[in-house]
Structures are given as structure tokens and as C-alpha cells.
Simulated scan of single mutants.
Amino acid sequence: MAQNQVDLKFPKGGLIFIIIAVVLIIFISKSTVTIGPGEGGVLFERFGDGINTDETYNEGFHIVAPWNEMIVLKVRQQSISDEMNVLSVNGLEVKVNGTIWYEPELENLGSLIKTKGADFVRELLNPAVNAAARSVVGRYTPEQLYSSKRDVIEQEILEELTNILSDQYLTVKRVLVEDVKLPTTIRTAIETKLKQEQESLEYEFRLAKAKKEAERQKIDAEGKAVANKILSASLTDKILQEKGIDATLELAKSPNSKVVVIGSGKDGLPIILGNQ
């Protein structure tokens, strides 16, 4: 039994077309870059001088040579949080929890990557934050750190970071000290002292209030005494007699009383008896 053999021959031109199409796809995929919102790009020129520090690419679609590489990083405001072990002014170890808001300078993104690398947060920002925190916290006592100096510490750390990073193409926007952790014994002692100070202030307030009330009552009593003295000096026998007559007449007008005059009372005033 004979077998029919069929020779399949692929067209030579078709093979070349497929090869060209594959190369073109690879070329396009390597040559197009989309930079997303809040991001910036820096070109790494493989056959040139490496990172191109003269040009930064903004958001959108870009075409680059396939042998070059586009390094894309976030350039919008970002934050990092960390817990640092630092020493207070008296050598006591304190744990500080804080958050830093920072933003790379878009126009200098190439210089930032060239000098500090794409991982500039670990290489540059974290060491700067630790140095600034140690410098600032080392100026204060544990009591100041725990209570009243939080806002001042935040501002001073921000100023220290700004000085450290002044020529590093990175801007720190804000510093927030979220918590200061002291050893339990120290924290308890500080809380007890603060409580005692509060109780002392409350006691002093009550004393001051009582003193003011006593002074008010004294002034009021002295005023009444002076008034009575003036009144007593002005009441002559004739005035008293006239006041008595007026009072008697008013009483006689009352519908609930009957007027019965039986002679005269002391100082010539009539005597009123009886009522309904």
C-alpha cells in the first residue's frame, strides 16, 4: 500500500514577515513608557553618560530608544513613619514615634537618583530623620518630651531636616511626633508629679476665691454700717413722729382693720385696735 507524502513548505517571505513583526513588537514595547499621575521619569542612557540629569519626564506617554531605560518614581507628597530610640538631655532612652511628609524635587529628580539612587528614602531620608530627631530630643528632659514641648520639638526637627537636606533635592513638608514612650517608672513619676501640681493649682484657686469672697463680704458689711450710721444721724424725733403718722394712716386704709382711737399712744400717736 503506497503512502502519499505531502510536503508543507512555508513561504519564505512569510517567515521574514513574522520575524520583522516580532522584532517590531519588542522594539515598540521597549520604546514606549507611560508615566502615571504623581510620577516623574528619568532616562538612563545605556550607551551615554548614564542618568540624564538635564531632563525630567512628566506624566503621560513617552517614546525612548529601546536600549535606554526610563526610571519612574513618585514625585507627589509622600510619608514615612518610624519609631526611633533616642536619648534625652539626661541620657535616658526615649522611643519616639513620628511621621515625615516629604516630596522629591521633580526638576532635580535625575540628580537625586544619580547621587542617592532610586532608593533614596533608605539611603538619604531615613538617616537624616534619625540624625535630626537625636539632635532635637537630646535638648530636652523626659518631662518636657512627655508633656508640653511636643509642638516645639516637631518644629525643631523640621528645621534640622531642612538644613540637612538643603542641597539634596528632597523637600520635607511636615513633621508629626505621634507618641513619646518613656520607661514605666519614669512615666509614672512624671504623671504623679503632674497630678500633684494640678491639685496644688486647684487648692490655690479655691483659697484665692475664698479670699475674694471674704473681702467682698467685708466691703458689703462696711458699706451697710456706714449707711446705717448716716441714717441714724438723720432721724430726729420729729421725723420719726411723721413717719409713724404716715404708717398709721396707711394701716387705717386697710379693709381688714377697724380704727378705734382711744386716747393717744406714746409720742402722741393714735392707737389702732381691732380687725376683721
Rank of each mutant, 00 (worst) to 15 (best):
N256P: 00
L24F: 09
S232C: 00
K258C: 03
G138P: 01
F17L: 14
R46A: 06
D49P: 09
G48Q: 09
H62N: 08
A252M: 15
G60F: 02
Q198A: 09
V175C: 10
D246P: 00
G13C: 04
V96G: 03
K116W: 08
R122S: 15
P37I: 05
V86D: 11
D49N: 15
L124E: 06
N126W: 09
D82G: 10
L273D: 06
I245D: 06
E83W: 04
W101Q: 11
K238E: 15
L165T: 09
E107L: 06
L161P: 10
I239F: 05
K243I: 10
L231D: 08
E178I: 01
K116Q: 12
I51Y: 06
L240E: 11
I245W: 12
I262N: 12
P11I: 11
I20K: 03
S148C: 03
D151Q: 12
D49V: 09
L125F: 01
K12C: 00
A65Q: 13
Q144D: 15
V94W: 02
T32Q: 03
K209I: 05
S148D: 13
A221I: 15
K229E: 13
K173Q: 13
I18L: 15
G263S: 08
H62K: 11
L194H: 00
A128Y: 14
D7S: 08
L251M: 10
F27I: 04
L176F: 13
E197W: 01
Q217Y: 10
K116V: 04
N228T: 07
V89A: 12
V94D: 06
K253P: 01
I63P: 01
S264A: 11
L73P: 03
E107M: 07
I262H: 07
P11E: 14
K74Q: 12
K209D: 13
Y203A: 08
T32E: 07
Q5P: 00
R76I: 02
A128E: 14
V64D: 01
I245V: 08
V89S: 12
A247I: 06
S79M: 05
R46N: 11
A233H: 05
E105P: 00
G138T: 05
V136C: 12
F44D: 01
T248I: 12
L269A: 08
V259P: 02
K229T: 14
